[in-house]
Amino acid sequence: MTELQRSLRNSINCFSKGKQNVSLITRMVSSEAAKPSWKNSNSKYETIKVVYLDNITKIVLNRPQKKNAFSFQMYREVTSALDEAGQDDSVLTVLTGQGDYFSSGNDLNNALQPFTGGAEEMVKEGTGVVRDLVHKVIDFPKPLVAVVNGPAIGIATTILGLFDLVYASDKATFNTPFSKLGQHPEGCSSYTFPKIMGYSKAVEVLLFNKTLTAREAFNVGLVTEVFPDSTFQQEIWSRLRDYATLPKNCLALSKQLIRNLEKEKLHAVCQKEFELLANMANSEDAINAIQRFFQRKAKL
């Protein structure tokens, strides 16, 4: 074999190995890029999960054994997670539930917690944590989306009037059983619901405990769109990932431009609602309603 032939063969071998290396590197990069870059950055939370993916911060109510009922701790943790999400790099933030329920609302076991100051301290604590959450939602600087995967009760329904988008599975229902519990509307629903769905329908829902199906909630404007439960998660997250590619600052500033028109009004409504709730929390109606609830629960 001549020197020229040996040189040519070595060149071919080197080229072939180079192609193999490039191909290997390409496959490694492609494989790595295909992996979801989940960032579960908030393991400090016990009642919720917070994950980040594709420019979306997802806050998951994570008490499925309690139908994602809001304990005092959950109120505080969701408020904290929203505070962090409002300052992170995400384009939008999503609230959803783990399991079959979005949330069964306020955990009435909150009323059984021991407080050294008695009923007065319990009322102050209870109204305080809920009010803090509502104020945080009112002031949230980015698009805020509710992905309602199942039944939403009480605060889990009323607060939806403050969200920018509400997507629901066709298995979701919406109920505000306040009068049954001797309570009053909150989450600014005394203002947002009549504005969204009209006065008489809001009265039917807030005063007379009318349960709305997902389709009914869509028809009155509380829900943005309804999806079949079988394809709900796939369709929703595909759409939200597309939304999250839009310019972050443009979306945030546009949302704030719209919300600022009513922000002062919403804070005033929230304050008024919780003043009424605090004043009536120890009323005979409320006490009797709570007692009946636990009596029924004990018989189950």
Rank of each mutant, 00 (worst) to 15 (best):
A268T: 09
L266Q: 07
L207V: 11
A119F: 11
H184M: 05
R76P: 03
V51M: 12
Q183F: 07
K297P: 07
N260S: 12
Q256F: 04
V166K: 00
A146K: 00
V94M: 00
I258C: 03
L212W: 07
T245D: 07
S230W: 02
Y199V: 13
I159C: 03
M1T: 11
L240R: 01
V148F: 00
T213L: 00
L165E: 09
G99D: 01
K142L: 04
F227M: 03
K297W: 09
S23M: 04
K39T: 14
L165A: 06
M197V: 14
G97W: 01
L181I: 05
K297H: 13
C250T: 15
E204T: 11
C270S: 09
L24D: 12
A202E: 00
A152P: 02
P177C: 04
P64M: 13
A217D: 02
Y75M: 12
N62L: 05
R131V: 09
S43G: 13
D170I: 02
G18C: 07
Q73A: 08
V203Y: 14
I25T: 09
W38F: 15
Q73V: 13
K272Q: 08
I153A: 07
A33S: 12
E84G: 04
K210S: 06
Y167C: 03
E284N: 04
V205K: 03
A81Q: 02
P36F: 01
P151F: 03
K19E: 09
Q113V: 14
C14R: 08
A278K: 11
L276N: 10
N68T: 12
S189Q: 09
L95F: 08
L300I: 10
E204D: 15
R27P: 04
D229C: 01
V22W: 14
A172V: 01
L276K: 07
W237P: 05
L251H: 10
S169P: 01
T192H: 00
L246S: 10
S23E: 08
F193K: 01
R6Y: 07
A81W: 03
F218W: 15
Q291V: 14
R292I: 11
N62F: 14
K201C: 12
N279D: 05
L61T: 10
L277G: 04
R27K: 14
K124M: 11
D164Q: 08
R27Y: 08
D285C: 03
L253M: 06
L222Y: 02
I155H: 11
D164R: 02
T231K: 10
R131H: 15
R6S: 10
Q291K: 14
D54I: 01
S80C: 06
V60C: 07
Y199H: 13
N13L: 14
E32P: 00
I153E: 12
W237H: 12
R131S: 11
A168R: 00
K67C: 05
G187P: 14
K263N: 09
K17Y: 09
P194I: 06
